[in-house]
């Protein structure tokens, strides 16, 4: 274990960036793109473009054959990445390449089985080596995540657990206590995808998280995802949350208008973070 990883981080790089964004602006913008779509190099270029155009934290999705939390836009992109030969090792290549070009923390958004097959400890070690910040785990909850929690304790990687409008207070506390970086607030009962209105349930859930002890202190924070696709929605969410997560709108822009297109959409979304 290297010195950098042996010392557990009380404040995570992701948490610090979110805290800083809340100090200087309305909050943080977190941008999602899948690795390997439309190909590895362009997914790297697109991620770099996001950061250059106002995205604070990158969420890189790992394409998976059975993505139960994803809506049609992201499914289509990740399926295309798989068909063009995406391999897990590409994730580390991408993280390293992006980190070499821009200084934004990178979380991988991954379903559990690929990590399990790679080996949880080995995955954590390789992610640290590549310069990654941690994982968002859509199908791994705290109560099923002992092995990942232990690996992230060892490596100091961030771990972002999800909370939903249907989560009990007890489960919110579990997510708050075990998340590092931020707590993912699932805005609506549904899969990923743009929606006209971000559910009022998101505000209620953020309020409940704060009532259950969540603070924007660099180790946690509440970031809202699912359904956010416009600068107005970003601004609306940042009025009560610490960060806004945008996925499908960026993926659609990348798929329709390439790297320049995704840069444009990111720049526009970032206007929603001003105060």
């Amino acid at each position: 274990m290297s010195e950098a990883t042996s010392e557990l981080r009380a404040t995570s790089p992701v948490g610090s960036v979110i805290q800083a964004a809340n100090a200087t602006r309305a909050g943080a913008l977190i941008g999602y793109l899948p690795v390997g779509f439309p190909n590895l190099q362009q997914s790297i270029d697109a991620a770099v473009a996001l950061v250059e155009n106002g995205v604070d934290v990158l969420e890189l999705g790992l394409p998976y054959s059975d993505p139960v939390m994803d809506g049609p836009v992201i499914q289509k992109a990740t399926q295309s990445a798989l068909e063009s030969g995406f391999h897990l090792s590409d994730a580390f290549t991408a993280v390293e390449a992006i980190r070499a070009r821009v200084d934004a923390p990178i979380l991988l958004m991954t379903y559990y089985n690929p990590v399990l097959q790679y080996g949880i400890e080995r995955f954590a070690t390789d992610l640290v080596s590549a310069g990654g910040a941690g994982l968002i785990t859509p199908d791994l909850t705290v109560d099923s995540g002992a092995e990942w929690i232990s690996a992230s304790e060892r490596t100091g990687l961030d771990r972002v657990f999800l909370t939903a409008p249907t989560s009990t207070d007890e489960r919110l506390k579990l997510a708050i206590e075990n998340s590092r970086g931020f707590v993912y607030v699932v805005s609506t009962m549904g899969v990923t995808g743009a929606r006209n209105d971000v559910d009022a349930a998101a505000r209620t859930l953020v309020d409940r998280l704060r009532a259950n002890g969540l603070e924007t202190d660099g180790s946690s924070g509440a970031c809202v995802g699912i359904g956010i696709s416009t600068p107005d929605q970003v601004a609306e969410v940042l009025a009560y949350a610490d960060g806004a997560i945008v996925g499908s709108a960026l993926v659609r822009a990348l798929s329709e208008d390439g790297v320049a297109g995704v840069a444009r959409v990111a720049r526009s979304l970032a206007t929603g973070t001003t105060r």
């Binding site: 199908d139 909370t163 939903a164 249907t166 489960r171």
Partner: peptide, 12 residues
């Protein structure tokens, strides 16, 4: 066995 599912479905 176990339960490896999105948080959104845990309550159900």
């Amino acid at each position: 066995g176990g339960r490896f599912m999105p948080e959104s479905l845990i309550a159900a």
